[in-house]
């Protein structure tokens, strides 16, 4: 096994990791405020991807416009889910909304199947995005580079918003103590809506990146990456955005190294491996890599 191979697997890991990271940020933002594990997050990616595909292939819209529309669509779907499936159950507790989010997930998957058929469809980004740059034998597409930079930029912007702005302070307050936040005069429904807007927009962007990487899409495509991204968020320390990004990269790299370096008989178990990594890390650090000692829950 030569170093170039290992190195290129490492880079593949970072590629995959940046997609996980993007999804994990969205998970984390919503989880941080509502303690809601939103299983439908991954399926919102799928909705966004199908939106792009339909607008480009059926209506002939330019890609950038379709991407914009897919973000809007993802936000609309996210907000409808929040309003109809999560908000009415908020008082019932975390377990209830968790189950409810599974229901939304299954509903969206089936809706996609009804509208677009369960068949896989090809998803091709334009050449200028898929063009492969060669760095001493390590090949990266323009899209990979954009994804990586986008993750870092989004992390920096969101960290700034959360640490320094009034909205961010309200978000942290809600995450710390919901009832006390209400007593401060914070309209918590606004805060939750903002979290879902951010989360769903990021889901749309990550869907694009995922589809660009796989080159095919299907109605179930979002679910497993969504689960893995949730693992990434937990691994990094759920609620912490830096943790979500770190967790995404760690998981992506671990998965690609496993897939690339292990004997071919066991590489099909890469999904299982991801969850094993999660369990091992949590045994050592129950609150994730960057999670606080006292725990992310209040």
């Amino acid at each position: 096994m030569d170093t170039l191979y290992v190195l290129s697997q490492l880079v593949n890991g970072l590629k995959l990791g940046s997609v996980y990271a993007m999804v994990a940020i969205g998970y984390s933002i919503v989880y941080g405020i509502l303690r809601l594990i939103n299983f439908a997050h991954g399926d919102i990616m799928t909705v966004a991807v199908y939106t792009i595909l339909s607008l480009v292939t059926i209506f002939g819209l330019p890609l950038w416009m379709s991407i914009g529309a897919s973000v809007v669509m993802a936000v609309v779907v996210g907000l409808i889910a929040e309003r109809t499936a999560y908000r009415p159950l908020r008082a019932a507790g975390e377990e209830t909304t968790l189950v409810s989010s599974l229901a939304v997930s299954i509903f969206l998957q089936n809706l996609m199947m009804m509208i677009f058929s369960p068949q896989r469809k090809a998803f091709h980004l334009p050449e200028n995005l898929t063009f492969l740059h060669n760095f001493n034998g390590i090949r990266l597409s323009t899209m990979n580079i954009i994804t990586f930079i986008a993750v870092i930029v989004i992390l920096v912007i969101l960290t700034f918003v959360i640490k320094r702005t009034r909205v961010g302070m309200a978000m942290r307050a809600c995450s710390d103590n919901m009832d006390a936040s209400r007593l401060m005069g914070i309209n918590i429904n606004h805060v939750v809506v903002i979290a879902f807007i951010i989360g769903s927009s990021l889901a749309a962007l990550s869907g694009l990146m995922l589809a660009g990487e796989y080159k095919t899409i299907d109605p179930m495509m979002g679910f497993v990456p969504g689960l893995k991204a949730f693992c990434a968020a937990v691994l990094g320390g759920i609620g912490s955005l830096g943790g979500a990004v770190l967790g995404g990269f760690v998981l992506g790299v671990a998965e690609m190294l496993f897939a690339g370096l292990m004997p071919t008989e066991i590489t099909p178990y890469r999904d299982a491996f991801v969850f094993v990594v999660l369990i091992l890390v949590l045994m050592v650090r129950p609150n994730g890599i960057l999670g606080s000692r006292e725990g992310g829950r209040s």
Partner: peptide, 16 residues
């Protein structure tokens, strides 16, 4: 109180 936030942030939230 907001236990993960500083005194300053707690007071700022009072004046939200």
């Amino acid at each position: 109180i907001f236990s993960k936030m500083t005194i300053k942030e707690n007071l700022r939230l009072g004046a939200f």
